[in-house]
Structures are given as C-alpha cells and as structure tokens.
C-alpha cells in the first residue's frame, strides 16, 4: 500500500500537460516514476476507477483522472459503487462511502 505515491501520480497527471502527454504515450513508463504496488500500478493502467477508489484515492483527484480517461460523470459515480461491490469497502484514505450500494443520490 503506497496511497501517497498513487495519489501523487494522479496529482501530477492532473496538473501537468507534459505528464498527460507522457501518460497517454507510454502509461507504463509514466507509472514507473512512482513507487507503486503491482495492484496500484495495474489499477492505473486499466483505468480501474472502482479499485482506485477502494484503494483510498481522494475523489477530488480521482474525478479528474476519470475525465482524462473519457469517463462520463454518471459512469464515474457508478464505477466507484461497482468497485466497492467487487473489491470490498474502501481500504485506506480519509473517506469511505456513506450510502448503500443501491442508493440513488446522484440526481441523475
């Protein structure tokens, strides 16, 4: 578990156009610049929003990664719910889901 490094990768990616270009050209080499576990690295390469959420990534960073990956808002919210269903509750970080899996709160 290296949530700080995983979050840092997304922070850098969100704010730096050069980093975005590198990520899009060679995501594996971009990910190699951070000290990630195999699971974290794969979650980035797979754009696995659900797993990234369960690993504890703050939504304020994660939502921009989802946008970068072309994921629409409604799908982004659902992917986090699906992640909790598939991988179990949020494992680390600050904030865990407070609504039930099938609860509809998004206003969509």
């Amino acid at each position: 578990m290296s949530l700080y490094q995983l979050s840092k990768l997304l922070y850098v990616l969100n704010r730096d156009d050069g980093a975005k270009a590198q990520f899009q050209q060679d995501p594996g080499s971009f990910a190699d610049g951070f000290d990630l576990t195999g699971e974290e690295r794969q979650a980035i390469l797979d754009h696995d929003i659900g797993l990234l959420y369960v690993l504890g990534v703050n939504g304020q960073i994660l939502m921009h990664f989802a946008a970068l990956c072309g994921i629409a808002w409604a799908d982004y919210l659902q992917m986090m719910r699906d992640g909790v269903e598939k991988y179990g509750p949020v494992r680390a970080g600050l904030y865990a889901m407070t609504t039930a899996l099938d609860e509809k709160v998004a206003g969509l």
Partner: peptide, 10 residues
Amino acid sequence: HWPATPDSGR
C-alpha cells in the same frame, strides 16, 4: 456535500 465520491448528490 460528499463531492466526487459515490455519495455525490447527498
């Protein structure tokens, strides 16, 4: 608010 989480909208 619970922004950018699955609870967004609550």
